[in-house]
Design a protein around this nucleic acid. Structure first.
Lengths: 345, 345
DNA sequence: CTGAAAGCGCTTACAG
DNA sequence: CTGAAAGCGCTTACAG
């Protein structure tokens, strides 16, 4: 640990060996971007000395003085690679990583914060190590985000968020349109009474989907019943009751764990009911990577990878002070046809 | 970019506000590990000022002076989340992330390097930002690694590597034993003539597997033919020729892309041959996450997640100067039974 | 056209 | 028990 730095040659060592000043070494080795005039002899001496000592610049020192890092943060508020929801986070990461590489930034994953009791300060503390930071999560810690925005520290959310008015930059998915399209497809298949299962809390991801469902249902003259659930209260009896009451299609919000749709599938299996024969089932989203053995659900694709890429582009734009980047973007979600939607029984 | 850092309060600002010296602020805020005695009044004044200014320590500056920043690097020599091999990298990442969180380190993904022409210097340059670095890849860039080791910079490879003698710390998988076990299972099923397909290059991952195969085959009195291939030259004709020559089982090295085993499966399908009816097929590894629709191959599991965790433990041990951690570990690979091995036809 | 000064924000010896 | 100095390794104004 001690040996790590102490044995490395510094610009000062080179300067001594070459008989010039340390700043001159910096100028020569830094490619002389300021356009200063160096004598060719000085250049050569310095380069030779650097070569012979095996000089490698210290990125930390460089960053401290240059005030920029080429580091982009990614903060997820839960483990970055949670085992149970890993597949829904992964595509975001792929996009983030790709575009970071393109833009010449490395990626800083804030993981240690999730293990400790991570209050607002904890967040603020570590995040600033990066030149700017991406955030991923259903909800926004408003105090921390406000602070970032006030300080002019560049942040971008993955997912639409208006908790802070119009201030917070984000890349969202157009859940409203995509959810509406799902309902329209059900209406076109002949359904007139559907059930919409959603989370209890009012994250924008839930609000947007419900808005899309309700608007499209109204528009198509379809009755849409909204039920809030955490999945635990969906069982065979309840499913049968819904169907007996005239429900012919169930639409479920997509979440990290897809707990609602799983509960429905499970209840249907126990009851010997099948989709789309006995009722139609649609997911407001996709079930990426978690489908081995499970039927392909009708729904829509969330462009996670592209969202990740777009978020990085916004963030690097902000870091570079580029005013021309649109900082609030919503990406379209292509429909997924699947095999769980058919005409009403 | 300008607003980001310049508007942030520093210890100097706090000192001014509290009417003390900047180093005193550092002492108070740093938790006073040196055990110096501070007057309670000073403490309170400083903490109050820090609070009111919303102070956040600059990790870069801290790293420069303290020579440590609670950052662990991960360098992959290709895109960190390459699309085609993503599933084989992902479990490593999960393990690395988990254990980093446990140990209180954040994770730095070196991505930008992969896009540019990443020479030795590039690696050396960026990596040192972290307190230590993990590396993932078939081969070792010897010059760069040598340099790290010489400098006492903590590095750990994921995967066994002896290219640098006994110097390089690593966490490997016991491919020798696991490969031997696969051959033994084939021998017990009655096979007496098998073909072993491996990569052209001599990465340790290939060398170990071949050693295990050859030793176990010799031991069991089984003939094992070694064929080096990149998959491109495996077609229906060649597969038939092998089987006609008496081969009853094919064993393929597992790689990022599993190109060899895929070629065999494809050739078999075209030829109307089935496993294990017409011949047995085994993989020296697993096919994590890429198996939707494909048959479960017999082989062994690579404990990627645990390897990631173990690598982090070694690395944090090195960073902390803990001499007691074994720096070269090989983890066992549990057998996977699968459905592609049976008795010879 | 060059070289010495100041500064980035912090920590850790080292004097009072 | 406290406060001012020196230093981490670099970059960027600013004098000669």
């Amino acid at each position: 640990m001690s040996g790590a730095r102490s044995s490395r040659p510094t610009q000062a060592d080179i300067a001594r060996l070459a008989g010039v000043s340390q700043p001159t070494v910096s100028l020569v080795l830094g490619g002389n971007k300021a356009g200063m005039t160096l004598s060719e002899a000085t250049r050569r001496k310095v380069l030779k000395a650097a070569e012979s000592l095996g000089y490698v610049p210290d990125p930390i020192a460089r960053r401290l003085s240059r005030r920029q890092n080429n580091l982009l943060g990614l903060y997820t508020f839960t483990a970055t690679f949670p085992t149970d929801v890993q597949h829904s986070y992964y595509p975001f990461l792929v996009g983030v990583e790709e575009e970071s590489a393109v833009q010449g930034y490395d990626l800083l994953l804030f993981t240690s914060s999730s293990s400790t009791e991570s209050g607002t300060n904890e967040v603020l503390n570590r995040v600033r190590l990066a030149d700017g930071c991406l955030f991923l999560g259903r909800h926004v810690p408003e105090a921390a985000m406000s602070r970032f925005l006030d300080d002019g520290y560049p942040v971008v959310y993955i997912g639409r968020h208006d908790e802070l008015g119009e201030r917070l930059p984000y890349v969202g998915a157009d859940y409203v349109s995509a959810s509406g399209a799902v309902v329209r497809r059900l209406a076109e298949a002949g359904h007139r009474h559907l059930l919409y299962l959603r989370e209890h809390d009012d994250a924008p991801a839930s609000v947007d989907r419900e808005a899309g469902v309700v608007a499209a249902a109204t528009d198509a003259g379809v009755r849409a019943e909204v039920v809030r659930t955490d999945g635990g209260d969906v069982d065979t009896g309840r499913l049968r009751a819904w169907l007996d009451a005239g429900v012919t299609a169930i639409v479920a919000e997509e979440t990290d764990t897809d707990i609602a749709v799983s509960a429905v599938e499970c209840a249907a299996r126990s009851a010997g009911l099948r989709c789309p024969d006995d009722f139609s089932l649609a997911l407001l989203g996709d079930r990426v990577g978690r489908s081995p053995g499970l039927p392909a659900l009708s729904g829509f694709a969330i462009p996670r990878r592209e969202m990740g890429r777009a978020a990085v582009r916004i963030l690097t734009g902000l870091v570079a002070g580029d005013e021309s980047v649109p900082v609030r973007q919503v990406l379209p979600c292509p429909p997924l046809v699947g095999e769980t939607v058919g005409p009403p029984p």
